[in-house]
């Protein structure tokens, strides 16, 4: 059996709301350690991988590892029907592995709402990626910035064009774009430390200058999720997709991998 409870408006609910503009269906793996989710956007440009450790939930129980496909949009619609103060329970029993049961319980425990949501096939959303610690070392540059600043950069640039060029070297991290009506260049002089301060832009790993061109539509989606957190970590490599990461508690994360644009 798998069962988790959370308060209405918890971080899981906020994240599911924020990924909706990219993701319809997701593959969810549950283990005793926590709840992980993988999904591809419909254009297959973005791969989303997130892990919520069991300790971020009000209660969490998973007797046996299980994997299921969830129609995220339908699940979010159901979750929206909860009221302030409700405790939300998501449950799958071994006897019935065709749907999940979502229950809302009012704070005074006088009203309970049960809903069943059919599981779907989401096996195509599973991708084989390396262990994260192996993969992170392959990024040429990794920097952290306040997520509000990241969102502001993406919004400012999208006024001019659909693409952004992110360039990183020892001296500067820049976000720039050029369109028919003009150009925008936003430059940040980074701190260089392993312990980024919350309010600053910090270059944490640097193995050589790197630049990538990305579609701002996807970047704005990443920025939307990131604003649920203080800081966002961004990794660039010419051999890997751009990585945008937010940490959830000590062990949890949301990672977006965004395929860049390349010159023909």
């Amino acid at each position: 059996m798998f069962e988790l409870t959370m308060a209405k408006g918890s971080i899981l609910q906020g994240v599911l709301e924020a990924i909706l503009d990219l993701v319809n269906v997701a593959n969810v793996d549950c283990s005793s350690k926590g709840f992980s989710l993988q999904a591809l956007d419909t254009e297959h440009v973005v791969f989303l991988s997130l892990f919520f450790p069991s300790e971020v939930f009000r209660s969490y129980r998973c007797d046996e590892d299980c994997s299921m496909g969830i129609a995220i949009a339908d699940m979010v619609d159901l979750l929206r029907a909860s009221n302030d103060g409700d405790i939300i329970t998501i449950k799958v029993t071994d006897q019935n592995f065709e749907d999940i049961t979502i229950t809302f319980e009012s704070p005074d425990k006088t009203k309970t709402t049960d809903m069943d949501l059919q599981l779907v096939d989401a096996r195509s959303h599973r991708l084989k990626i390396s262990e994260w610690h192996d993969m992170e070392s392959e990024y040429q540059a990794i920097f952290c910035m306040p997520s509000a600043q990241f969102m502001l950069n993406c919004k400012s640039l999208s006024v001019i064009d659909d693409d952004v060029v992110i360039r990183v070297n020892e001296e500067v991290i820049s976000f720039s774009t050029k369109g028919k009506s003009g150009c925008v260049n936003i430059s940040h002089v980074p701190n260089k430390t392993d312990n980024p301060e919350k309010a600053s832009v910090t270059l944490t790993h640097m193995r050589g200058p790197v630049s990538l061109t990305l579609n701002l539509r996807y970047m704005k989606s990443c920025a939307k999720v990131s604003t649920l957190f203080d800081q966002v970590k961004i990794g660039l490599s010419t051999k890997l997709p751009l990585m945008v990461e937010c940490k959830i508690a000590e062990k949890g994360y949301i990672r977006y991998f965004v395929a860049p644009k390349i010159t023909e």
């Binding site: 084989k128 890997l240 997709p241 991998f257 395929a259 644009k261 390349i262 010159t263 023909e264």
Partner: peptide, 14 residues
């Protein structure tokens, strides 16, 4: 002109 790469260029399916 730039072309959009797909994520499958980097990660294979399980």
């Amino acid at each position: 002109p730039c072309i959009q790469k797909r994520i499958i260029h980097y990660f294979s399916k399980k």
